[in-house]
Simulated assay, not measured.
Amino acid sequence: MTTTHPTRRMPRRNVIRTAGTGSVAALGLALAMTSPATAQPAGTPSGAAASTTVTPAGHHFTATLSGKATFKAGPVTVTCTTSVSSGQVPASPGNHNPAGPVSSSTTPATYGSCTTSMPGVAASVTTTGTWGVAMQNGVPVTAGLTIPAAGFVLRTSGLASCTVTAAPTSATTVNGTWTNGAPSTLAFTNASVPVKVVGGFGCPTGATTSTFNATYTVRDTTDPASQITVTD
């Protein structure tokens, strides 16, 4: 007897391949970025990505940590109290996408004044490469932060010498929530980041993900009287 099996349809992944203007064009950047998940505004056809516009077009911005950023891998938590990154909204018409996110490159987010939950253990963070952010209009407005492969390395020293590498094998996108305001904010709440941990005693070498929490205020540095906003 011949047994037939129904054809299985693999789910489609929505991948946005972007090459924006402004700082993105200047760097010749072509990032493959996963569209951040978001609810669709009323009137948007089912399954279609919402229209997104980021303004002011062409303006530079700086994202500065508000409060503290935490990275938790296994039982170990690292807390940093300073972090900053900068970028540029794509020039028109690249600041508008009729069916998806608007993407741009950013400088690597720096992290400083870091401590750990382990007594006698210090921590430092090194970031490299070209990072990116993709803003998607919706309810809520979301933003996907792309970290390049091995673009974030956390090292501890003292009683435990560990190395934690985020996005260890390929670029990864960390999803956050954007809120328009004066200034606008970008928040990451229990965001999961793939990591590889190496080291000896006290290092969470079994951890494959880290939980990231942080809130950034985003200010327009081209015109401080303006605000960076995401609309349809």
Rank of each mutant, 00 (worst) to 15 (best):
G74N: 11
G74I: 03
G74E: 05
P75T: 15
V76A: 03
V76I: 14
V76F: 01
V76H: 03
T77K: 09
T77D: 00
T77A: 06
T77E: 07
V78K: 00
V78C: 01
T79M: 05
T79Q: 04
T79K: 04
T79H: 05
C80V: 07
C80Q: 03
C80T: 06
C80F: 07
T81V: 01
T81I: 00
T81P: 02
T81E: 06
S83C: 02
S83N: 04
S83L: 05
V84Q: 14
V84W: 02
S85M: 14
S85T: 15
S86K: 13
S86M: 12
S86Q: 14
G87E: 00
G87N: 01
G87Q: 00
Q88S: 12
Q88D: 09
Q88A: 12
V89Y: 08
V89Q: 07
V89L: 04
V89R: 05
A91S: 13
S92F: 13
S92R: 06
S92T: 14
S92A: 15
S92Q: 11
S92M: 05
P93C: 03
P93Q: 06
G94M: 04
G94W: 06
G94A: 15
N95A: 03
N95M: 02
N95S: 04
N95F: 00
H96W: 06
N97H: 13
N97I: 10
N97S: 14
P98V: 11
A99C: 09
A99Y: 12
A99G: 12
P101Y: 00
P101F: 00
P101D: 02
P101N: 00
V102A: 05
V102H: 05
V102C: 07
S103N: 08
S103E: 03
S103A: 14
S104Y: 09
S104T: 15
S104I: 05
S105T: 14
S105H: 09
S105Q: 12
T106K: 04
T106F: 00
T106E: 09
T107Y: 02
T107F: 02
T107E: 01
T107D: 04
P108M: 01
P108E: 06
A109I: 12
A109K: 11
A109R: 13
A109Q: 13
T110A: 13
T110D: 03
T110M: 08
Y111M: 14
G112L: 08
G112A: 12
S113C: 03
S113A: 12
S113V: 04
S113E: 13
S113R: 10
S113F: 08
S113H: 13
C114E: 11
C114Y: 12
C114K: 07
C114A: 08
T115G: 12
T115E: 10
T116C: 03
T116Y: 01
T116I: 03
S117Y: 07
